[in-house]
């Protein structure tokens, strides 16, 4: 068969043009879409792990970064972190190549349907390990785990997402996060997470204007000009209004926590607030996790929190009318 036709694109989302293929397609499997977005973040982490400084020994390298997480933690916690740091120090290439490989494995494992559950399981174990050894338990033991800085640890959200997105047959109603664990458990997880964020915004150095100022000021170096400009504004704002902003963030977190119990329209409003606030924090405070300065292993908590919030977005009947068979793949409309 000779095919001269070369109009080879994805099916239309809107428009009045003919769409015979689209009309026959099953509804989109939203849980699968979220799994793939999570896989994309893991793939980004894997590629970030291949940066030159990650293979470097010493204070400017990966082992130095790991050892830096020990400071301020209780002795027994710090000891485990420096133990891991010393292993990386002695074998920087081997350990870093292994770390990157695990993250590639998780990303591609999530994509392949037969290995999705194994990959998500591995991602939970790996995320907890990274949280402890790589993020110093998120700074919780130091009293510096403010959500502004990524507390209680960006990688913890990877683990939470893995649980919520565990493959299962069923409906994406009333939101994707409830498909596997059920509505009550999903709501419980939501309340615990946002409640924790509210508490962490207020305890320890989380409400200290100077600490919040330093949080941004320390990230400033190496950032592109436009982000450094935003940083200066953020640092000044924190120095003058740090405590007020911490209290405001805590209030927002409490409102968002309650939002999941409200009618769908109000839930959407609280989710938009959460998304806007944490998108702003991700850019103006976390600086995309420091990725743009070339010294980060992940994009910090901003990106996974956005995914987490979107997983609770109320779904409507028309878009997700029924059960999705895990074994029945559905085509993605957006072929990016």
């Amino acid at each position: 068969m000779v095919i001269a036709e070369t109009e080879l694109d994805s099916a239309p989302i809107t428009g009045s043009s003919p769409a015979p293929v689209d009309q026959q397609r099953p509804p989109r499997d939203l849980q699968r879409t979220f799994q793939l977005l999570l896989a994309t973040v893991w793939l980004l982490d894997a590629v970030l792990q291949l940066q030159p400084f990650m293979f470097t020994r010493g204070s400017n390298g990966f082992s130095g970064m790991l050892n830096g997480m020990a400071g301020g933690n209780p002795g027994w916690v710090a000891q485990t972190i420096t133990w891991n740091g010393s292993i990386v120090y002695h074998q920087p290439v081997l350990t870093n190549a292994a770390f990157a490989s695990v993250q590639f494995l998780i990303a591609f494992g999530i994509v392949w349907r037969r290995s999705t559950t194994y990959a998500l399981g591995l991602s939970i174990v790996w995320a907890l390990g990274v949280w402890w050894f790589g993020e110093g338990a998120g700074g919780i033991f130091q009293g510096g785990a403010t959500p502004f800085g990524g507390g209680p640890g960006g990688v913890l959200f990877y683990a939470v997402l893995a649980v919520l997105l565990w493959p299962s047959e069923g409906s994406d109603q009333p939101f994707v996060a409830a498909r596997t664990v059920g509505v009550r458990v999903a709501q419980g997880i939501w309340v615990v997470v946002w409640g924790l964020l509210a508490v962490l915004a207020l305890v320890g150095s989380g409400r200290s204007p100077q600490a919040l100022h330093d949080l941004v000021a320390n990230l400033n170096s190496g950032q592109p000009g436009w982000l450094a400009h935003i940083d200066r504004s953020s640092a000044t704002l924190f120095l003058h209004q740090g405590t007020t902003l911490a209290i405001l963030l805590a209030v927002v977190c409490v409102v968002v926590a309650v939002g999941v119990f409200l009618p769908p329209q109000l839930t959407q409003v609280t989710l938009v607030v959460a998304i806007v606030v944490f998108a702003a924090i991700w850019v103006a405070v976390q600086n995309f996790g420091g990725v743009l300065a070339g010294g980060a292993t992940d994009p910090n908590s901003g990106l996974p929190i956005l995914l987490f919030a979107l997983a609770y977005w109320p779904t409507n009947e028309r878009r997700s009318p029924g059960a999705h068979a895990v074994s029945a793949p559905v085509p993605m409309k957006a072929e990016v």
Binding site: L8, A11, T40, L44
Partner: peptide
């Protein structure tokens, strides 16, 4: 990276070269 992941997951094998409107 998103394109890589979604291409791998797509049931329309070969679509990264030929799209999905091919018969």
């Amino acid at each position: 990276l998103g394109s890589a992941i979604f291409t791998l997951a797509s049931p329309n094998k070969g679509a990264s070269h030929h799209g999905t409107h091919l018969p």
